Amino acid sequence: MTIKTEQPKTVEDIQNWLIDQFAQQLDVEPDDIDVEEPFDNYELDSSKALILLGRLEKWLGKELNPVVMFNYPTIAELSERLGELYL
């Protein structure tokens, strides 16, 4: 019997996941999401940020400090930082 273990997420995986989450939240196509655009420009208020963070924690299987989303306020920056911290 083989136990399936999930592969670690790459920076690209994290970035793609975040793009998909923002696209769903904004009801737009993933191609319309700019990874260099600040979260504030996507109407990501603190409550939405915490919901997103909770989903991200579950997806990564890691607990995250909420401050990370404010210290790295774009999809590109957050993806890179999470890649450095957790991969």
Rank of each mutant, 00 (worst) to 15 (best):
Q25Y: 13
D31E: 12
E12I: 01
L60G: 00
D34K: 05
T10V: 00
R81Y: 13
D31S: 15
Q25L: 15
P38V: 10
P38T: 04
V11D: 06
E43G: 05
L56K: 06
L87K: 13
E6N: 09
L44Q: 04
T5W: 00
V67P: 06
V28A: 04
F22G: 02
D27Q: 14
D40E: 13
F70I: 12
S47E: 13
G83A: 12
I75T: 01
Y42N: 02
E37W: 10
F22N: 08
L78T: 01
T74I: 03
V68Q: 08
W17M: 12
L82R: 01
V28P: 03
D31C: 11
Q15N: 03
A49N: 00
R81N: 13
L87R: 08
E77Y: 09
P73Q: 12
A76G: 09
I33Q: 08
E57G: 05
W17S: 08
P8N: 02
Q25P: 02
D32T: 08
D32F: 04
E12K: 11
A49Q: 04
S47L: 14
T2C: 00
F22H: 04
Y42S: 01
T2Y: 10
G83Y: 12
I14F: 04
A49E: 11
D34I: 01
L85C: 01
T5K: 13
F39T: 01
Q15M: 00
I51V: 15
G54S: 04
P30D: 07
F70L: 11
D45G: 01
E57C: 05
T5V: 14
G54H: 07
E6Q: 12
L26N: 10
E12C: 00
L82A: 05
S79P: 04
P30R: 03
L64G: 03
V35G: 04
P8G: 01
A23Q: 02
K9R: 05
D20A: 14
A49V: 14
E63T: 15
W59Y: 06
L52T: 10
D34S: 09
